[in-house]
Design a protein around this nucleic acid. Structure first.
Lengths: 139, 139
DNA sequence: CTCCAACCTGGAGTGCGCTCCAGGTCAAGG
DNA sequence: CCTTGACCTGGAGCGCACTCCAGGTTGGAG
């Protein structure tokens, strides 16, 4: 309803102006209204699309898939099932991603713990990696 | 000690052969030994570097930073402090990343819950987004 | 000794997701 | 009316991290 100028929409969505134009150009954001002079006016609806895109992007969905989702949504309610499936598959990938990330974060923390156990500089040959038993070389 | 052929190193590290060569070319992986004929032989030490690179890469560290870390490690023990700091700053970014990811994952789940509440197709105007009060348009 | 799969090099090409630019137009305040 | 900052378009360019290629070499099995 309200109508936001491009700069305002960018501020609210956290996307750059160029990105908003880009999203429209590739058909991700469709039917953005314009003033008589051709300048964009973003609605609350556009904004909530952008919020969704941010969610999907932040969770690593490729743009092509977002386009697919948006296209399905534009097609009407008969695509509910497909949309849901798309989101669920994505959610599953996100879960894997979170798992991997937290596992690797733990490795990272282990490595840091090694450095923390050094009061002053230690022998160059002392090292963690922890997966194997004996001491290894610094890396 | 053992010595792995390129294909075996690729298999064990999960990086492609091309990526291993690339990492060496840009100086991320240094001093990889060769046979008399010039073919690479990866050591356990190389392999454990690769394990580290995988950890850092999986957690989103840019290659330039990995290079920096590797260069510091090659310089000797007087860089312990700097290396530790580098890893700690990275760990902090990873924490933020995990937080963002889990928050956005929750949004995603909310969206999916909306689709789950539909036994059959529902009115086109029914929609979640949840941030605001009233019903919005399907997206 | 021969064969062939695995390896080598330098360099070009790819895919993604923007980002920047030139050259012009719009619209709100003074 | 004029100014000026925000906006417009099409298209080129960029940064990253690989990935692929052509054309040649190596080395272990048979």
């Amino acid at each position: 309803m309200t109508g936001y100028a491009p700069a305002e929409a960018a501020r609210r969505s956290g996307f750059s102006l160029d990105t908003l134009r880009y999203y429209e150009k590739i058909g991700l954001l469709a039917d953005v209204t314009r003033t008589a002079g051709g300048q964009r006016v973003f609605t609350d609806d556009d904004l909530s699309w952008l919020v969704l895109f941010r969610c999907l992007r932040d969770t690593g969905m490729p743009i092509a898939q977002m386009c697919r989702y948006a296209a399905l949504a534009r097609e009407g309610e008969h695509t509910f099932g497909e949309r849901r499936e798309l989101l669920e598959q994505h959610a599953a990938r996100v879960e894997e991603q979170m798992l991997l990330l937290s596992r690797q974060y733990e490795h990272l923390r282990e490595k840091i713990r090694f450095y923390e156990r050094l009061p002053g500089p230690a022998p160059e040959t002392a090292q963690p990696t922890a997966t194997r038993s004996g001491p290894a070389v610094s890396r």
